[in-house]
Structure formats: structure tokens, C-alpha cells
Amino acid sequence: MINFQYVQATDVADAVRQTDGDPRARFVAGGTNLIDLMKMEVEQPTRVIDITRLPLRQVEPTPSGGLRIGALVPNTDLAYHPLVEERYPVLSSAIMAGASQQLRNMASTGGNLLQRTRCAYFYDVATPCNKRTPGTGCSAIEGLNRGHAILGTSQACIAVHPSDMCVAMMMLDATVHVTGPTGDRVVPFADFHRLPGDAPQRDTNLNPGEIITAVELPPKGFASHHTYLKIRDRLSYAFALVAIAAGLDLDGDTIKEGRFALGGIAHKPWRDPKAEAVLRGQPANAATFTRAADVLLRDARGYKYNTFKIDLARRCIVRALGQAARATPQSQSHKKIA
């Protein structure tokens, strides 16, 4: 790890000011991802701005009936927050499906959005990687790509976003509140993360100097019909092969509104309005869910080691929507799949 200047920010404006247009400045909050990447020499900031003292630790209801989550709220606090457990249980479940309790105690809400990919080539500075070092090539396309993307890939990058929490936030139509040198703005969750395209080094649409201050959830939480289903290579403490957050609004057996977002299959949490449109007004049954899955996966493309994910994703969608319909959400501690 190269040395850096360590500074503490006193408030949001100070934090933004401290970046001072320096592309090698980084905010640190939980540190669980940044410090790991710094040890691996993947991130080499020359200035680290400690934002842990900023007043961004509140979880509070919004006037419109939603919930505003401060960017520094630790993952565990968010998952266990009474309002989240009551109104957005899918978010609690998604958070508890990720990492370990120690990491969740440290990791912040904003930091979770900014997690970088687990692609082994990204992590290993001895190998080419366009995301880490633009223009060097993607080692994963012809390499070990079991964990890689099947949707939204490019010739430059097939990495996936590793977060579980973000998958649920995507499904819930969250918005991301950011502050930057030119003021505040609100970014819809779907527009926050990017597809790799020809600039895979950019994970998000944050501008230089911008800081996440909050994530806001709209009122609708799908508390009665939801699930977070995560499939991985061991039963806990592993990144997703495929994960899905699903929520249904039912009228009897008929779907009034259905939403589902997937993790582990793309450069961003993946949601497809066309697939959700398939659900609307249809009976909540396997046939409907399979049709929706087929739409979402219509352009899926596998690589040497991850083609199975297309089939797995299809099965996960059907299963998860079934769990949501039956109101039997997946438990994150009891490992039998509901």
C-alpha cells in the first residue's frame, strides 16, 4: 500500500471540498472494500478522506411515506432497523445474505453501492484488466469466468457487481442522493451503476468529487410478498452466482405489479421493465414466471465457464417469484430453499 495523506472531513461540504478535484482522492467509511483493494495495489489513493464523522447515520421516514437512509448507516443497522424489517423486509434479507456480520457491522450504505467487482483479474495487478488499467484488455472473456456476467457485457469487460443490498434497492426503486462540487442531485437507482461499455473503469455515474449522502426508498416495500434468494458455491459468506430480489403486489392470484432484480449476472443490479410487464395482470404461477424469466434472459450470453448461469438464473427467477407469491420468503439462516 502506498502512503497517502489521511484527512478527516467534518461535514459533507468539507468532504467534497477535500477531494479538491484530485482524481486519486478516496472517501473511506467502512473501509471493507477500499482497504482490501489498497492492500492489493488495485486502488492507490494519495489522499484518503475519512468521512465517518459526517452526520449521515440516520434512518428516518420521509414525508411521502418512504424511508431515507443516511449513507453512513452500517449494513447491520439498516438490516435490523425496525422500519426496514417491517416495511422493506426484502432489503433486510438481502443485506443479511451478503458478507459476514463483522463486515456488515463495518460496511456503510454508501460504500456498499460503490463496491467494486470481485473479478480475479481486476484484483490481480499482474494480469491485464480494462477495468483496473484501461486498454490492457479483458482477461476474463477468455479466462476463468465462472463468476462473470451473462447480460450487459461488452468486449471490454464482463465483470459483475458484487452487492446483495443493491439488488434489493434496485427492486425497490430506490434513489441515490449525492452532493458534489456543483450541488445536490438525485439519481434513480437504475441510473446509478453503469454497464461496462467501452469504459469499464467507471462503475457508476457519480461525477468526480461527488459523495453519496443518502439512499431513499419509496413507500412501496412489498412487505407481504417478497423474497431475496441467493445462490452461491457455499451456504454462506460467498459472493452470488445468481441472486434475486423479488416483490409482488397481488390481487388474489393475479399479479397487479411484479418486480424482480438480479445480482451476480451483470455489471449492475439487473432489472428489466419488459420482463416485469409480462407479470402484470397474469396469474401468479410458474408459467407466468417462466415467461418473465425468458424475457429477462432473452439476450443472455454465456462464456466458457458461466453458461450454466443462464439456466440457473431462469430457475432462480421462477423459484423466487414463487416464494414471493406464496409469502414464503427465503430465510438467510435456514438453508433449505423455500
Binding site: 473501509g31 482497504i35 457491522n105 463495518m106
Partner: peptide
């Protein structure tokens, strides 16, 4: 344990 909560001490700068 940091203020009673379990954390990974390897992934954090002491100065924080």
C-alpha cells in the same frame, strides 16, 4: 469488538 460490535480489525485503519 469495537464499542461492543464485532468487526474485522484487518480492514480498517487504526486512525479511524
Amino acid at each position: 469488538l469495537s464499542d461492543g460490535r464485532r468487526i474485522n480489525s484487518c480492514l480498517t485503519f487504526a486512525v479511524m
